[in-house]
Design a protein around this nucleic acid. Structure first.
Length: 458
RNA sequence: UCCCCGGUAGCUCAAUCGGCAGAGCGGAUGACUGUUAAUCAUUAGGUUGGGUGUUCGAGUCACCCCCGGGGAGCCA
């Protein structure tokens, strides 16, 4: 007989004479002559309770079925006379599939700290919280694809290994097949696998621009690597990024897309992972539902960078970092705008060109570019994007101004030579979206196996 | 990388001025006829992150190192 997911068993409309459940023991409560065994198989947050009578086949090993053990139960799905669950299993047969020594199994039947669970990342998905987290992560990824597919966007698989050191979004990890334990040969770069310097991607944007100018609407969704020595709760060396790119659109279309995308994901996950999201609302961030409601309730505030700076200058608060035209928006500024002044998501746009990347489209005022960042309470920047410079002469001038080598950008410039068109796009930090959705405050707790400086366990 | 805080039993934490290293949970053993992080009783469990120093005496003070957390910068 086939195994039944616990999620399916608990959703059953009627009793079943014969059902097979397999999973891991969360807790066992022994009574005189029988035991309650609660199993979880990851298919849903809830456990299923099996009642194992001393007459059941396999009962002689019940005392070995400790928390953490893998166990199979065959029996009947019956209405539970006890409180707290609709269905339970009246076991006819129990099987100890894989024991777990109670004395050394690290997970207890009580709350653990996130820090401790990070140190046992191979076992933490067996907890309620991280079990829920990684179901939500999966469903959110689906929501991303669902959103863009519904709008006619093509999913582009951008390369992970790149030869262009001009992606410009941060320090890069070097890729090599050379043995770093040996002295490097002469002409090491030429001798290396690709015959030139190679790196892990820091952005799929340049690839996406190519395909935006062939397929009109594309998005990438894949791993991204930044070798920055960042030690914060919002940065990881390996993370996932969603990067849509579309032709024949401008910065305001870009803002619309970002806003709709965030709202779609929130609604989708709340609908399809309701119990899992509730866990976070109950135990992790008590105001989570109110926050998510507030994001969905109204259009995001949109204001030019210059106005944002004026608000910060006039608000009467003293900031650690200076405020004024040309200064970057610091974390304290972002949080003030999103959390205190507007109390919801804010899209800041038209930044000074000096503090943004070379490829962003110059505005007519001569000093700003068509960039936009979406700032949300608690997280800060969750989306960063821009309309791209599609005018060949303007782009060439900007590259020269910044002292960059145009040779490295030859194909990027050719996109502006042959059939150039206005286009725009953004990067959405997938982990930051998960932090927004769950109220979790550390990026290490939304990644299955987080990579951060000096941390490469598991 | 910079600043701040921390590291004591498997986990979460106490330990007064430098004076016998403790509790809860978890584990083990037993009790209990339907439990819900079951309950009750008994019990085992320690190189106080590592090193050096001060002292009659160091978990406690000083210095160095390792590890963790929070904040900042960089960004998504």
């Amino acid at each position: 007989m086939k195994r039944c997911d616990i999620a399916a068993a608990l959703a059953s409309e009627e009793p079943r004479d014969e059902i097979v459940i397999k999973g891991w023991v969360r807790t066992r409560r022994d009574q005189k002559g029988f035991s309650f065994l609660e199993l979880n198989d990851g298919s849903c947050l809830a456990n299923i309770q099996a009642v194992v009578d001393e007459g059941s086949e396999g009962f002689e090993r019940i005392l070995e079925m400790n928390t953490g053990a893998a166990v199979g139960v065959t029996g009947a799905l019956v209405p539970s006379p006890g409180k707290g669950q609709k269905w339970e299993i009246k076991a006819r047969r129990v099987e100890l599939i894989g024991p777990a020594d109670a004395e050394t199994y690290p997970l207890q039947k009580k709350r653990h700290t996130d820090e401790f669970l990070r140190s046992i990342a191979h076992l933490r998905p067996r907890t309620n919280k991280f079990g829920a987290m990684f179901r939500i992560r999966s469903e959110t990824a689906f929501a991303i694809h669902d959103f863009f597919r519904g709008r006619g966007f093509i999913n582009l698989h951008a390369p992970i290994i790149t030869g262009s050191d001009c992606e410009g979004a941060g320090d890069m990890f070097r890729v090599t097949t050379l043995d770093l334990g040996q002295p490097l040969p002469k002409d090491a770069v030429e001798a290396d696998f690709f015959g030139k310097e190679s790196f892990l991607t820091v952005s799929g944007q340049l690839s996406a621009e190519v395909f935006a100018l062939s397929h009109s609407k594309v998005y990438t969704f894949g791993p991204t690597f930044r070798a920055e020595n960042s030690n914060t709760a919002r940065h990881a060396a390996e993370f996932w990024m969603v990067e849509p790119e579309f032709a024949f659109g401008d910065l305001h279309d870009n803002m619309d897309l970002a806003e709709d995308c965030l709202k779609h994901c929130i609604t989708h996950v709340r609908t399809h992972c309701a119990a899992d999201v509730e866990l976070f609302a109950k135990w992790v961030e008590p105001t989570l539902n109110a926050q998510l409601d507030a994001i969905l309730a109204r259009p995001f505030t949109r204001l030019p960078y210059g106005e944002a700076m004026e608000i910060l200058a006039k608000c009467g608060k003293t900031f650690e970092h200076p405020v004024g035209w040309g200064k970057d928006l610091q974390t304290e500024h972002e949080r003030y705008l999103a959390e205190e002044h507007f109390g919801g998501p804010v899209i800041v746009y038209d930044y000074p060109k000096e503090i943004k990347a070379f490829y962003m489209r110059q505005n007519d005022d001569g000093r700003s570019v068509a960039a936009m960042d979406v700032l949300v309470p608690r997280i800060g920047e969750i989306v960063g994007g821009s309309q791209r410079e599609e005018r060949l002469d303007v782009l060439e001038r900007r590259i020269a101004e910044l002292g960059l080598d145009p040779a490295g950008y030859w194909w990027y410039l050719e996109l502006r030579t042959f059939g150039s068109a206005p286009h725009a796009g953004f990067g959405l930090g997938f982990e930051r979206l998960l932090m927004l959705l769950t109220g979790v405050t550390n990026i290490r707790d939304v990644l299955p196996f987080p990579r951060t400086p000096k941390h490469l366990e598991f």
